[in-house]
Design a protein around this nucleic acid. Structure first.
Lengths: 124, 124
DNA sequence: CCGTATCCCATATGATACTG
DNA sequence: CAGTATCATATGGGATACGG
């Protein structure tokens, strides 16, 4: 037997109240995950590199986001025993499968920002 | 001149701290927007229909989500002066452009839920 | 039926200071 | 460099009651 048969995968449906996919969507839709995954899409990155790329993220939130991604198997963390310490984060195979959907979202936001601003202004 | 040249569209970039695209991503990534847009993908829906489809959403959050989508020009609200009142929500043209990216996200969540659960279980 | 108003709590996030 | 710990705050979100 397996350890993944908590529920029947065939019935997983985020439209259903307690389906775990809903919590998963919550997580990948949070304020920083989209950007952190995007930053890591370019290849392995150090903590400070990601922090610079994701402008404005606090140390706390970056750590927290990376830990969550690690726990979900989307990112690996590799620490090199050097001084000063060096730590690299990298997308896993599963993490890579998120790149395209998230990039599509980013592109949507950039493409349609003018239309959204216009709609907001129209009811100013 | 136009009213949409708040910033140069060519430099819109969610990786930059105060870029409005980042707030837009926040919004469409919130707990309910993905599901509400998905519900409306089937065509115009009444408030109560959406509420049933998006299992567990509170009246308050559904109203709030729909108002935000309306303000951003992604959804239209049509009230029919009947008794009892009937209100229909429908995706705008721009709203429709969100369907595919969001559906891709949903599908990612459903597809990779087992892998994520396995990763979580693997670290007890 | 379709909301609005209010209260309340949990959590997400930020700022700051400290450590191996 | 790469965190951890702590405090403070803003926001998200639910429950409930009421209104057109």
């Amino acid at each position: 037997m397996t350890t993944t048969d908590t529920l029947d995968p065939l019935v997983w449906d985020p439209y259903v109240r307690d389906c775990p996919t809903r919590a998963l969507l919550d997580r990948i839709g949070d304020r920083w995950t989209v950007l952190v995954i995007g930053a890591l899409a370019d290849g392995p990155q150090r903590f400070s590199q990601i922090a610079r790329r994701v402008d404005g993220v606090s140390q706390k939130m970056l750590t927290q986001t990376l830990r969550a991604l690690e726990a979900d198997g989307l990112v690996t963390r590799t620490q090199y025993p050097e001084i000063p310490p060096r730590v690299e984060y990298e997308l896993t195979a599963v993490g890579h499968t998120l790149r395209d959907p998230l990039r599509a979202l980013e592109e949507w936001a950039v493409t349609h920002m003018p239309a959204v601003l216009a709609a907001r202004a129209a009811r100013g």
